[in-house]
């Protein structure tokens, strides 16, 4: 099945499940739902907001078929955006009902004397959802460790879904028909199924797929390269540019998982080693990764992602990497060199200074093995720097790309600012959007 068809089917299923409570309510017993349009509007917002919340679990559960159609980083962004939409709907839900005459004190204050289980669960679910979204948006500013946030995020989300369901069932107004009861159960089954799949089944399947650290070497740019080998299994081959979720610890059930791109070539023979390059961003990458030593166990779930030149055939490529976004691009160059691929590649590498150019030596070594031009662009170079300065922009690009660049594909990977700038600028200078493929490194 083509990716386009698969994408349409997945989105169709998503839309159907979002609208399912509305459709079922209309078909089953419309006269009992609401006495006025305003109340009906509030109820409708609650229905769709709840469905969106439940489906948030599906967007990040790494279902390979869906991820292949959209890209895991796109699904993650969609998850983030629709989470905020769900919050908006679920905030508007009580507001409209209160305007319609529902007593605010009973519905918003779980400790009020007039509050009951239905109102308390509604209020607590709403406050938990607000907390969930705020801690996600402001995690770094609030200084919350990723691992702590990851656990809290999952628990809060589960609480919101369960408390909302209790609210719906105790209220009883929208569970009077068997069809409506089935609809709410569909979401329960979906959420429980996805949590079990993601947190239990996938780790169990990975139980016999242990990996071992062979080497842990320091790289420029406060990064480390981990060379891993599969233990008792064949490991995997991957499309250059893809990533995997890494875990440290004795079992694959640890909660902290980290999306890290492979930096080695993708055509790995059975049992072959795979290399990951990890930038120190604090937390796990700054504390646990440097402490890893040869022989230590790691868990690798992958490969994932659609960011690969293998999926974007062209006469040549322009790669634009910033920061640790260079790792998937290095993997692509390495693979092309190993394959003897003669197509030209121009690689723009944005970094702060000479010291922060991770994998530059390896990339320069590849220029003798393939048709590769590496253009480092430094925003804060030393006085001795002879190369490009500032940020990767159209003028710098024009100086280095060949005339036939309109036949090339652009693959861009890096921090948010670089991605935003490139996604806006490239179409403006005549590079059609379909020639540009991006991957964001702000998934978590």
């Amino acid at each position: 099945m083509g990716l386009m068809v698969r994408g349409i089917l997945w989105f169709g299923m998503y839309l159907f499940l979002v609208l399912l409570p509305l459709i079922t309510a209309v078909l089953s017993n419309p006269e009992r739902i609401a006495p006025s349009p305003l109340v009906a509007l509030g109820v409708g917002l609650g229905f769709v907001g709840y469905a969106l919340m439940a489906l948030e679990f599906a967007l990040i559960s790494r279902i390979k078929s869906a991820a292949a159609a959209f890209g895991e980083d796109a699904l993650q962004q969609f998850h983030n955006t629709m989470g905020m939409v769900a919050l908006g709907f679920l905030l508007a839900h009580p507001i409209l009902l209160i305007i319609s005459g529902y007593p605010a004190k009973c519905w918003l204050n779980p400790f009020a004397s007039c509050a009951n289980l239905a109102t308390r669960t509604a209020a607590l679910a709403l406050y938990a959802l607000i907390l969930l979204v705020v801690t996600s948006i402001l995690r770094k500013k609030l200084g919350i460790r990723y691992e702590v946030w990851y656990v809290l995020h999952g628990l809060f989300a589960l609480f919101v879904v369960v408390a909302s369901l209790v609210h719906i069932f105790i209220l009883g107004r929208y569970t009077t028909t068997p069809a409506m009861r089935v609809v709410w159960l569909v979401y329960v089954v979906l959420v429980i199924g996805l949590v079990l799949y993601h947190r239990i089944l996938v780790p169990i399947l990975n139980w016999n797929k242990k990996w071992e650290v062979v080497e842990n070497r320091v790289e420029p740019g406060d990064a480390r390269t981990l060379v891993l080998k599969p233990v008792g299994h064949n490991g995997f081959s991957f499309e250059p540019g893809q990533f995997a979720w890494l875990k440290t610890g004795r079992t694959p059930f640890g909660l902290g998982q980290h999306p890290i791109s492979m930096s080695s070539g993708g055509d790995v023979p059975p049992g072959g080693q795979v290399t990951f390059t990890v930038k120190n961003l604090g937390d796990w990458s700054g504390q646990e990764v440097p402490a890893l030593k040869p022989g230590d166990t790691m868990w690798v779930e992958g490969p994932h992602g659609v960011f690969s030149m293998d999926r974007e055939q062209a006469m040549g490529y322009v790669f634009v990497g910033g920061g640790i976004g260079i790792t998937p691009l290095h993997s692509m160059c390495q693979t092309m060199a190993e394959r003897g691929d003669p197509r030209p590649v121009v690689l723009f590498y944005g970094a702060h200074d000479e010291e922060s150019l991770t994998l530059l030596e390896e990339l320069q070594a590849l220029t003798s093995r393939m048709n590769l031009t590496v253009v480092p662009v430094l925003s804060h170079p030393s006085e001795d720097w002879q190369g490009e300065t500032g940020y990767v922009n159209v003028d710098i690009m024009k100086r280095h790309v060949p005339k036939q660049v309109k036949w090339f594909k652009f693959l861009i990977c890096g921090p948010e600012q670089l991605m935003d700038a490139m996604e806006e600028v490239l179409p403006a200078v005549g590079i059609p959007p379909q020639n540009v493929l991006t991957e964001r490194f702000d998934m978590v």
Binding site: P37, G71, M82, T438
Partner: peptide
């Protein structure tokens, strides 16, 4: 997929959902 495309797509979907909710409200309260 582009970040911009995802944002636009989510925006369009949100509008579609609001329209669906309004239609729902009109049907069930009429």
């Amino acid at each position: 997929m582009h970040h911009v495309i995802v944002k636009r797509f989510a925006g369009l979907l949100t509008i579609l959902l609001i329209v669906a909710i309004v239609v729902f409200a009109l049907i069930v309260s009429s």
